[in-house]
Write a protein that binds this DNA or RNA. Structure first.
Length: 692
RNA sequence: UGCCCGAUGGUGUAAUGGUAGCACAACUGAUUCUGGAUCAGUUUGUCUUGGUUCGAAUCCAGGUCGGGCAGCCA
């Protein structure tokens, strides 16, 4: 953290967000000077930090840094029933890993319990707090509702002396859990429910991980948090939006006390597509063994991301892009991945590794010979230098890089075709040798090393068979299938949206020898495949284990996907959402993103002609729900032919009116010459199932 | 139904009464011994209705939509 120059005040930083605008205003008005600014990061030690916390960290520490101030790390440990030392160490590790340095020692809310108690006594003396003997249920029942005011407790107007006595005895342990609470005396009719005499202290005969048995009453968040901030001299207490409604209480509780008054400012928390972020859900993933633990590389926890191969630099870059607002945003994980790739592209050395090996024999290369070829380590970084990689007659290439019958635009190996071997020359496929079961045993090629400067469409990676090191590689993909995993039908929950293919473990990968020498957590690029890191725990030199951090952008996958979609589109929807479709029903329907189409199986319950039309049929189908679909197929199908059949429909189109009847979807049909065929499903697919 | 907060391309975010910009995503093209990277370009936006003003994304009012709040959790 830059030190404050002694002789002159540093220039005010540019206000890049609304919080910094407030801080700037406070400095301009003379409320604070640069260097006075103090923030804090106050996690409750009851879980692991995730990328959402990283946003808060980035704001808290970032503002302190910008204003030459300080940021505290404070464990908000006011509830011994939920918290544990285990988490304290993990939190410190994660904060340090991200590169943030807190001021002084780690602080603990529990260190302030005595002061908080004294201030509570002061509140009682001022007539602003009272001991309530009601049960938790009674307090809940008399709190009122969102629209109705609450009722005052019968104990609300006890004398100060009695309150003081009772509160002291609460502390002394005279009462069991739940017998009494200390409440603020505010307004039971307040439209803000948090102002309806909130509980300040509860009795909890539970030992605390730091204070042991010293206390049996513990402060509630609202009472504790403002005091913690105040005691530490926090100037700007930054938190997430859900605390907005607590702010009047935060201010009310500090107002009568002779203490420093921090300002609470709220920003929106981070949400990511294809990700769940709440502690509760993450805990469930761990407890139900949907992942291997808090540090599973698919988890959005900081320790998980670290194990996945994320770098602090990439996370900072991402957080900078995300910004600071009060808008409830859902950020595309693609942005995170983009920041990651951007960083890894610059810093990682390149290596050759084959994930799914296919043997390739170079028939015009001598048996038993090995050459060491020079390869560039990082084309983005000339300082990274070069290395030598072994080359011989037998190599492994990627199964994906050979096709017996290549699809259009395929730039890789296929019979009779040539392709460049990275760093080694150009090979032409002469022969495909097969096993008895018809699978490919090996590819036989001839190598051209003389005329290698010419343009060749494709370049593929390879590993010399003799020197290859066996490796385990774990391919990680997003944990959830759905952009918003929590958006589910009734009776389902986010678990139903887990991606069953989020982890693929490959154990017979072949990698170049240098990769066996890597240290844990080293980050590399496997050329043409992606960025990988040596697993933090399982990797050993000589017995390498790699995690795929993120794949390279894959233009070919896009082309291929588009190609197969176009093929599928031959079976194009036969009815039309656009009334201007021509008389053959051959009008084109365009869609910006074909992959957004939802295809579902649907059972035809009823079918009838639509009067005054010659081509239109109205189908009533069960696709999980009952819908009616209008299709221009009456010339080809009789209504009775269709009833009971299972067809495929496009489920997520805007309803369109055809022949005066609303169509809530389209059916899939193929037209070849004059024949029109509806796609039907013969297997046992239940209505409503997603297909394709 | 009460109170609080929010709304700018598909996504995130600037513009603070004066040319709606940037990044991601998507799509073209150039280039390339990574279908990577790089470079050039294209598409797409101020929730709505009024008002104030020479001028409104910005200020005001009504509406719409979204989020939050009824723990002795934080």
């Amino acid at each position: 953290m830059p030190e404050l120059p002694a002789d002159h005040a540093p220039a005010l930083p540019e206000a890049t967000d609304f919080i910094r605008e407030i801080v700037n205003a406070d400095i301009l008005s003379g409320k604070y000077r640069m260097g006075d600014i103090r923030t804090r990061f106050p996690p409750e030690p009851n879980g692991y930090l995730h990328i959402g916390h990283a946003k808060a960290l980035y704001i808290d520490f970032g503002i302190a840094r910008d204003y030459h101030g300080k940021c505290n790390l404070r464990m908000d440990d006011t509830n011994p029933s939920k918290e544990d030392v285990e988490y304290v160490e993990a939190i410190k590790d994660d904060v340090r890993w991200l590169g943030f340095e807190w001021d002084g020692d780690v602080r603990y809310a529990s260190d302030y319990f005595e002061q908080m108690y004294d201030y509570a006594v002061m509140m009682i003396e001022k007539g602003l707090a009272y001991v309530d003997d009601q049960t938790a249920d009674e307090i809940a029942a008399t709190r009122g509702t969102l629209t109705e005011p609450g009722q005052e407790s019968p104990y609300r107007n006890r004398s100060v002396a009695e309150n003081l006595d009772l509160f002291a005895r609460m502390r002394a342990g005279e009462f069991p859990n739940g017998a009494r609470v200390l409440r603020a005396k505010i307004d039971m009719a307040s439209p803000n429910i948090h102002m309806r005499d909130p509980v300040l202290y509860r009795i909890l005969h539970i030992p605390h991980h730091r204070t042991g048995d010293a206390w049996c009453i513990y402060p509630m968040y609202d009472w504790a948090h403002g005091l913690e901030d105040s005691i530490e001299g926090i100037t700007h207490s930054l938190c997430t939006l859900e605390f907005e409604i607590h702010r009047p209480l935060y201010d009310w509780l500090l107002a009568p006390l002779p203490v420093h008054k921090p300002q609470q400012i709220e920003f929106s928390r981070l949400n990511l597509t294809y990700t769940v972020m709440s502690k509760r859900r993450l805990l469930r993933l761990v407890q139900e063994n949907r992942v291997s633990g808090w540090d599973d590389p698919r988890m959005p926890t900081l320790c998980g991301m670290r194990r996945r191969g994320y770098t602090p630099t990439a996370i900072h870059a991402f957080l900078k892009c995300v910004g600071v607002t009060k808008y409830n945003a859902i950020t595309d994980v693609a942005l995170l991945e983009s920041c990651l790739r951007d960083e890894l592209n610059k810093v990682t050395p390149r290596y050759l590794a084959v994930l799914n090996p296919l043997k390739l024999v170079i028939t015009n290369y001598p048996e038993g010979q090995t050459e060491w070829l020079e390869a560039i380590n990082n084309p983005e970084d000339p300082d990274a230098g070069t290395r030598k990689i072994p080359f011989g007659r037998e190599l492994y290439i990627e199964q994906d890089d050979f096709r017996e019958t290549p699809p259009p635009k395929y730039h890789r190996l296929s019979p009779g075709q040539e392709v460049r071997l990275r760093w080694a020359g150009i090979v032409t496929c002469q022969e495909v040798v097969k096993n008895q079961d018809g699978t490919i045993a090996e590819i036989r090629c001839t190598l051209d090393r003389d005329n290698t400067d010419r343009r060749v469409k494709g370049t593929i990676h390879w590993v010399d068979a003799k020197h290859a090191v066996n490796a385990e590689v774990r391919l990680y993909d997003r944990l959830f299938n759905k952009e918003i995993p929590d958006a589910v039908a009734e009776g389902e929950d986010f678990i139903d949206n887990l991606n069953p293919d989020s982890l693929q473990v490959l154990t017979s990968c072949k990698v170049e020898p240098a990769l066996a020498e890597l240290a844990s957590e080293d980050k590399v690029q496997f050329e043409r495949l992606g960025y990988f890191c040596a697993d933090r725990f399982d990797h050993q030199p000589g017995k390498p284990v790699f995690n795929r951090t993120v794949s390279l952008k894959d233009t070919w996958a896009k082309i291929e996907q588009k190609g197969s979609k176009e093929n599928a589109a031959e079976a194009k929807p036969a009815s039309a959402t656009k009334p201007q479709a021509d008389a053959d029903g051959a009008g084109l329907i365009s869609m910006d993103d074909f992959s957004k189409l939802q295809l579902k199986a649907a059972r035809v319950l009823a079918a009838e002609r639509i009067p005054n039309t010659d081509k239109l049929l109205k189908l009533t189908v069960d696709c999980g729900e009952q819908r009616q679909i209008v299709a221009g197929i009456a010339l080809h199908y009789q209504p009775e032919d269709l009833v009971g059949k299972t067809i495929i429909i496009v489920n997520n189109l805007q309803p369109a009116v055809l022949g005066g009847v609303e169509s809530q979807g389209m059916l899939l049909a193929a037209k070849r010459k004059k024949e029109l065929r509806i796609l039907t499903v013969d297997g046992e697919i239940p209505p409503g199932a997603s297909v394709g």
